[in-house]
């Protein structure tokens, strides 16, 4: 097994593309190292991305934020502008593992691991985030929801890595929230996750929304009917009930050790209502 730590994106791509065997990119390594230790993967090449300056930088770009592919959650949580603009994304990042894990784990790594239960993915999808993917054929931007293609499968091609995640600009009176259900309080994996992003008009009416669910299907689910249910409302009970019903209807879960189909379907609706209310209050300036 070879370990490389290149200092440019081009060098990383060249290494990844040039390896005839199994090449793995290492951002924070919080999944890869566990898999190595338990013998689930045995790569021929590991390419560490953290020495690449653009991979570990948070920059403001065209009114939005660009987060390098190896920016750890802990850095995000120390960026006041980011936290103010995207509290939902930041709270999702804050749920990834322990304090120690948050010192390493990144949004792009969470996305590329392609677990249906990834916490930051529904939050990024609700935020309409895009992933900038670089590879031997150049660079492309892809909506975050289009990156995972199955359980631990994604649409990255041989030699490609996620260079950054872009969180787009949005109007005033916008905010977001992420909630997940776990039986414990931390150090756990989502049984259901829900990200909601909301924009209000001056009168407090929802003018735009995006709702995404995690852990209820093999990939993150965008619930357009849920967003429609609350657009034009002030999150009155009827709108929230319609949001919950739409979210429950969008679930295609399985029975497994973490929860039943019935449980996940019910709780998806409950979390959507609760996350929407939090996002609404944040957008309205009622809470931070």
């Amino acid at each position: 097994m070879r370990f490389e730590a290149p200092e440019t994106v081009e060098a990383a791509v060249s290494l990844m593309a040039g390896e005839p065997g199994n090449a793995q990119a290492l951002a924070g390594g919080t999944d890869l190292l566990v898999q190595l230790k338990t013998g689930r993967v045995s790569p021929d090449l590991i390419v560490d991305l953290k020495r690449i300056p653009s991979m570990v930088a948070i920059t403001q770009e065209d009114g939005g934020f660009r987060l390098g592919g190896a920016v750890p959650a802990a850095d995000m949580l120390e960026d006041d502008a980011l936290k103010a603009a995207w509290p939902g994304i930041c709270e999702a990042a804050h749920l990834v593992g322990s304090t120690q894990v948050m010192g390493r784990a990144s949004l792009a790594g969470n996305l590329c691991t392609s677990s249906p239960a990834a916490d930051t993915v529904p939050a990024m999808v609700a935020a309409s985030a895009t992933a900038r993917i670089v590879g031997p054929d150049g660079s492309r931007d892809l909506a975050v929801e289009d990156v995972p293609s199955g359980v631990q499968k994604n649409s990255l091609k041989k030699g490609e890595v996620v260079e950054s995640i872009y969180l787009p600009p949005r109007p005033a009176r916008s905010s977001d929230a992420y909630l997940r259900f776990i039986p414990r309080t931390e150090m756990d994996i989502a049984v259901v996750g829900c990200g909601v992003s909301i924009t209000l008009d001056e009168g407090g009416i929802v003018t735009d929304a995006k709702v995404a669910l995690g852990a209820v299907a093999i990939t993150v689910q965008v619930v357009e009917a849920g967003a429609k249910a609350i657009i034009g409302s002030k999150l009155e009970d009827a709108a929230l009930d319609a949001l919950a019903a739409a979210c429950s209807a969008a679930c295609k879960p399985i029975n497994d050790k973490r929860g039943t189909i019935e449980f996940r379907t019910d709780v998806a609706g409950v979390l959507a209502k609760r996350a929407a209310k939090i996002a609404y209050d944040r957008a309205a300036g009622v809470t931070a």
Binding site: P183, R184, T185, E186, M187, D188, I189, D256, K257, R258
Partner: peptide
Amino acid sequence: ALNEEYIYGEDGRLQNAGFLDYRIPVASD
């Protein structure tokens, strides 16, 4: 009482052989 349990599949194999899915309480619980 709340969350710990051995979960066996139809195949008789243990499905939660790790602290992620064998849920002992954490301090903040």
